[in-house]
């Protein structure tokens, strides 16, 4: 047994925190979405659904922090219909300790999701909330920032490195010009970018184990949150299709076309 000096022990205690990680059930990465013929929405019937890839990265980061002794418990949260339980089970099979589903069949826009997550944060008191930077369905890139704003917490968006340092967090962010490093006061909200980590593959025994992990279900009403959408979808349409052009035989023909036909060089 290792005996730590009181100073070291205190340092370890400071490092211990719960992590809440938000996961969204979204269209699978490999599926090309299409508008419904009547323009009222996107065709999702019989479409493969998966955990939003950025959220998978967020779950992986939470697990790595726990494996590094920086987190005591990982709670995965999802908002949506009953089928989101599958997404939570995936998070638990990866390594989350338990799940919470805020179950609703109604449309939930980012502001409503942020309010629901805030209510869960108030119940669970995590030291860190991890989310994907955006969902690949509505491409909003809002929920993490909104949650941080509602909580009055620091935010580390588009993170590619997350390093806990006592009661603060060093976050490296992917920004337009390169990489930016920030120190955030904890508790904080962090959103994962693509290169934060590579999520692990889920092993079969862990899928079995995940089925036995606790999963609590609330409704938005249980949490006292009004989820009425603030944006009304007027219509959806297909973007103007780009028509493939011609194949050129060699670079000389390509240069001639670019100079004389397209006139772009």
């Amino acid at each position: 047994m290792t005996v730590h000096s009181p100073r070291v022990q205190r340092a370890i205690l400071e490092d211990e925190m719960k992590i809440l990680v938000a996961v969204k059930r979204a269209i699978d990465y490999n599926v090309k979405a299409r508008p419904k013929a009547d323009g009222t929405g996107v065709e999702l019937a019989n479409v493969k659904m998966s955990m939003n890839p950025f959220d998978e990265i967020a779950v992986e980061e939470a697990i790595r922090l726990q494996e590094a002794g920086k987190a005591t418990e990982i709670i995965a949260v999802s908002v949506g219909p009953a089928t989101c339980q599958e997404t939570l089970r995936t998070a638990m099979a990866m390594g989350a300790d338990r799940g919470i589903l805020v179950q609703t069949d109604s449309e939930t826009q980012p502001l409503a999701v942020a309010k629901l997550l805030k209510a869960i944060v108030e119940r669970e008191q995590p030291g860190l909330v991890l989310l994907g930077k955006q969902a690949i369905d509505d491409d909003s890139n809002q929920t993490g920032q909104m949650l941080a704003g509602l909580l009055g917490w620091a935010q580390g968006t588009f993170a590619c490195t997350v390093l806990p340092e006592g009661d603060s967090l060093l976050v490296k962010r992917e920004v337009d010009g390169g990489i930016q490093s920030l120190t955030l006061k904890l508790p904080a909200v962090v959103t994962a970018d693509l290169r934060l980590n590579e999520p692990r593959y889920v092993k079969l025994p862990n899928i079995m184990k995940a089925k036995k992990k606790p999963l609590d279900i609330f409704s938005p009403a249980d949490l006292g949150i009004d989820i009425t959408p603030r944006l009304k979808l007027v219509k959806v349409s297909e973007p103007p299709a780009r028509v493939g052009g011609v194949k050129v035989a060699d670079v000389e023909e390509l240069v001639a076309k670019l100079r004389n036909e397209a006139k772009v060089i």
């Binding site: 826009q109 909104m146 704003g149 509602l150 968006t157 920004v175 603030r230």
Partner: peptide, 21 residues
Amino acid sequence: TSNGKNLMPRVAAMLDVAQLS
């Protein structure tokens, strides 16, 4: 931009309004 995407949702939530991204 990365700055704009980082800032505006925080503002929107504090105003209790939705954002159009």
